[in-house]
Amino acid sequence: MREFLRGRQARILAVLFLLMLGLMLLDASGEGYGSAPSRLLAAVTAPLQKATAALSDRWASFFSRYTDAAAAHEQAAALEAENDELRRQLIELDELRRQNEQYRQELAIADTTEGLTTLPAAVIARDANARFSAFEIDVGKKDGVEVGNLVITPSGVAGVVSAAYDRVARVTTVLSPEISIGVCISATGELGEVQGDPAAAAEGKTLVKLLPGDCAAEAGSLVVTAGVGGNYPRGLLLGTLETGVQAGENGVEGSARLIPAVDVNEIVNVSVVTGFTDSAKGGE
């Protein structure tokens, strides 16, 4: 051992370790030295990841037929009951839709979800150990994706693009504390901000912060993007409140746990919102 420590190998290893420390400093200094190798790796591995993602989906769906049979049976019973309830609501909804259309025409209000320019994408990489369920998609800068673009599914918002390379992009999900999306409670119109929390993220939930302390929203209230500031379109579903709003220590601000509309650990296909018209924007 002493021979090794005094020898050439130990010295080379020490130099390499110092090199790694230097790389860390350069990367942390934010001068972009670290992004070049990342881009190179993304370019090399993206086609392979695309192929392996397809393979992995087939593998998972093949085995899930057998392993999830009991859960599927229970789910079918629950869905049947839900279906009955939805049929009843559908009748009410038809009536409301007719009225809504009439009011829209009278007040000349545009549909909030119209006017989005979206780009379909597939999830090609995901590490269960990655913090807050981040994942990678198979579209990037060359497809028109930019950092900050919203990533959605038919169920609602999944996250925001946090890094965009030529042909792939990394998505930070709504569970992450690094994310911050302006939202409003659909029923009351009160504004807040969705920001992840590690304890909530462990249970697949997130938080709505900066709500008024006396906010009357109850559990089950829908939370949608507010579109304030014009960074994101308004009216896209983020989820439902798990609890009522709990006022903070000062009583001015409140927060509530949010059940995301999208299970970010299970999604396979997403759409990236690359643009939206003025009609989809909220107030400045």
């Binding site: 090199l19 790694m20 790389l23 942390a28 190798p37 990342s38």
Partner: peptide, 9 residues
């Protein structure tokens, strides 16, 4: 590189 952590860490 794969997970965007500080390069070299």
């Amino acid at each position: 590189m794969a997970w965007g952590s500080l390069l070299g860490f």
